[in-house]
């Protein structure tokens, strides 16, 4: 566990770069982390990020299926918004821990 300067603030992150204190998150941080992941954030990205953040904060089960059923984006669209590993990337940008679900 350490700290990292993101968007001008010292943020608590783990070895893999996930925020360890999700309350430190804000939109500027999301934009910065996304840039590191090679993603230029759009409103669509933010809508997905807010959705999964909301799910996490409510303590609900977060799965790729639930993102696909969110009404914001379908699963194909989710993969194209966050290419490669969508759940992991979106979680990192959303300032929540690495996804723990197998689905």
């Amino acid at each position: 566990m350490g700290q990292k300067l993101i968007a001008g603030i010292n943020i608590d992150v783990n070895d893999e770069g996930y925020l360890t204190n999700s309350s430190q998150w804000n939109k500027e941080i999301a934009v910065e982390i996304a840039k590191e992941e090679g993603i230029e954030i759009t409103e669509k990205h933010l809508a997905v990020v807010n959705f999964i953040r909301d799910k996490f904060l409510k303590g609900e089960n977060l799965t790729i299926r639930s993102v696909g059923n969110s009404g914001i984006v379908d699963i194909k669209g989710f993969y194209s918004l966050f290419p490669g590993a969508p759940m992991k990337k979106a979680a990192k940008i959303a300032g929540i821990p690495k996804p723990s679900s197998c689905v």
Binding site: R65, S66, G68, I75, S101, V103
Partner: peptide, 13 residues
């Protein structure tokens, strides 16, 4: 309950 989809939906995912 664990949000594991039916076979067809899983294949589509």
């Amino acid at each position: 309950k664990l949000d594991i989809p039916p076979v067809k939906e899983f294949l589509e995912m």
